[in-house]
């Protein structure tokens, strides 16, 4: 009986990119369960493969390059970076960190690399190159993920910023909405990751549009700051977007999102006949 149930839990649901989802992973989305790294990995892969690509395509060829400048690191890689700080540069190197403008890390609070299925909290750390900041989006700031984010930031900061820039500043994003229960932090990470990718594509499209306007000399209403926009201005625009988070990233949104991700996996599994 026990073996049979284990067999069912381990049944394959969907093989997507580098992620193989099993029944035991997908059921986590059904109830008020904690999410594991498999679900987060799937979502990051999906965002990169489909969501961002589609968003960029909608906004024209200028935004297409925005996709290549986003790097979504699966939680397993992040965990490796966090607990092997000395080799962070080496692990990141093949992923071309210097060519990325937005790098997302799902941070887990497990501090013991020998304990499987450890951890109790997820948060999202994002490197935003235009402002050279590492921004921590934590739906439960009291849960103690701040030291973990700090640790990760110290490990990856220098490799991300490159030799020419100072190590990025770690910013705790105060506008991040708080979770209202004890099980949704993972979903906040999924929602936030999608939002950041969309913002990035929008910003890229906006800049490309402004640059094109300047090139064609279309009217004085197109204002382009000489050279690159200032760091403060870039950060201010990002902060303005963050300030609006409370308006849409609500408990209800998160609850619906959990169901939507579940449906997405189901639809993909069905269409592939797995």
């Amino acid at each position: 009986m026990a073996t049979k149930r284990r067999g069912e839990d381990a049944a394959r649901v969907l093989s997507y990119g580098d992620v193989l989802l099993r029944v035991q992973d997908v059921v986590l989305l059904e109830g008020p369960e904690w999410l594991n790294d498999q679900i987060v990995s799937f979502w990051f892969e999906y965002l990169d493969e489909e969501h961002v690509a589609a968003a960029a395509a909608r906004r024209g060829p200028e935004a297409a390059s925005a996709r290549a400048s986003i790097l979504l690191l699966p939680p397993a890689t992040t965990f490796l970076l966090m607990h092997g700080a000395d080799m962070a540069a080496e692990v990141l190197a093949p992923l071309k960190p210097a060519s990325r403008g937005l790098v997302l890390f799902a941070v887990n609070d497990n501090t013991d690399p020998s304990r499987a299925a450890g951890g109790s909290h997820w948060s999202l750390l994002a490197y935003h190159r235009p402002s050279n900041t590492l921004r921590h989006y934590d739906s439960s700031p009291g849960s103690g993920n701040e030291p973990n984010a700090r640790r990760l930031a110290a490990a990856v900061g220098p490799a991300l910023a490159g030799r020419s820039s100072p190590a990025p500043l770690l910013v705790q994003v105060g506008a991040m909405p708080r979770q209202v229960n004890g099980h949704d932090c993972g979903v906040y990470v999924l929602a936030m990751a999608r939002a950041l990718c969309e913002w990035w594509v929008e910003e890229a499209a906006g800049k490309a549009g402004a640059a094109a306007g300047k090139a064609e000399g279309e009217g004085p209403e197109v204002q382009v700051v000489e050279g690159e926009a200032g760091v403060e201005e870039e950060e201010a625009r990002w902060v303005a977007r963050e300030a609006g988070l409370g308006e849409w990233l609500t408990a209800r949104y998160v609850r619906l999102m959990r169901a939507k991700v579940r449906e997405l996996i189901g639809a993909k599994a069905e269409s592939r006949g797995d």
Binding site: W34, D37, N108, N110, R115, H183, G186
Partner: peptide, 11 residues
């Protein structure tokens, strides 16, 4: 090849 353990989180 690096081997990393499973992680979970919710609260």
């Amino acid at each position: 090849i690096d081997c990393v353990i499973e992680q979970v989180g919710g609260c």
